[in-house]
Amino acid sequence: MSALPVRSRYVASFVTLRRSVTNNLVTGVAIVSTALVLVPLVAILGYLLYKGASSLNLAFFTHVPVPVGDPGGGMANAIVGSAAILGLASLLGIPLGIGAGVYLAEYARGTWMGAAVRFTADVLNGVPSIVMGLAAYSLIVAKQQHFSGLAGGVALAIMMVPTVARTTEEMLATVPNPIREAALGLGIPKWRTVLSVSLRTASPGIITGCMLAFARVAGETAPLLFTAFGNQFWSFDLNQPIAALPLQIYVYALSPYDEWHRLAWAGALVLIVMIMASVTLVRIFANRGALKGGH
């Protein structure tokens, strides 16, 4: 009778010790992993700031590139071009992606077609970006016989669709079914329920997904190489070759000229700041109408 409690006390203290060692070990591994992820990120940002900020001036934002050897010049046309291509890509890719996500989550759950679309989206997500460029090249550039901002926008839009579609689907899946039933129970038609209840409830997550897709394609160079092509001059015509920041950075960084290297650093910094600014702006804008409380 008396031997058992002693033994179990011994076992208990052993178990406690083992658990606390395991606990500390796993926590430690998590902290080290986080640091390993953060170090390169902070290093890149810091180095970019150090290299890029010194080359930034007003001319960078107001002037177009100048020939090699001439001092000064900027990337104004590339900034505008990037904005135009990304605007077009978002305009095409986000509605299409959200539409596909709504189909997957609200209409095709458990169907053969839904599984096929989901699988296709996942495969499309893993396709190298240069292949997207080739697709847009053969779909648009080869037909039109010239490079264009339009083709660049389409290439980036195709890249955005799978990310947006899958996050939309996943976010809609988190909307509790009783909320849908509440709407249907009021005699609200299904399409209205999807638009005004399901999508609205899932909107914070869907916006995050769209921003992720946007940030990812904003820095893409490969799909633009033989679609938007780049342009040394001002161009606002989406039907013509147009400059883009990643392209300009790519060309300048590979050049043998110090002046161009400087500008490439500045360009990279501006690109990152632009992405961060647009993501932040969308967040602020999306949060403006939010109500107190909620969940």
Binding site: P176, P178, I179, E181, A182, A183, R200, G294, H295
Partner: peptide
């Protein structure tokens, strides 16, 4: 319904 299900975004 059994559990209160107000629309959380409204």
């Amino acid at each position: 319904f059994q559990r209160p299900n107000p629309f959380p975004t409204m």
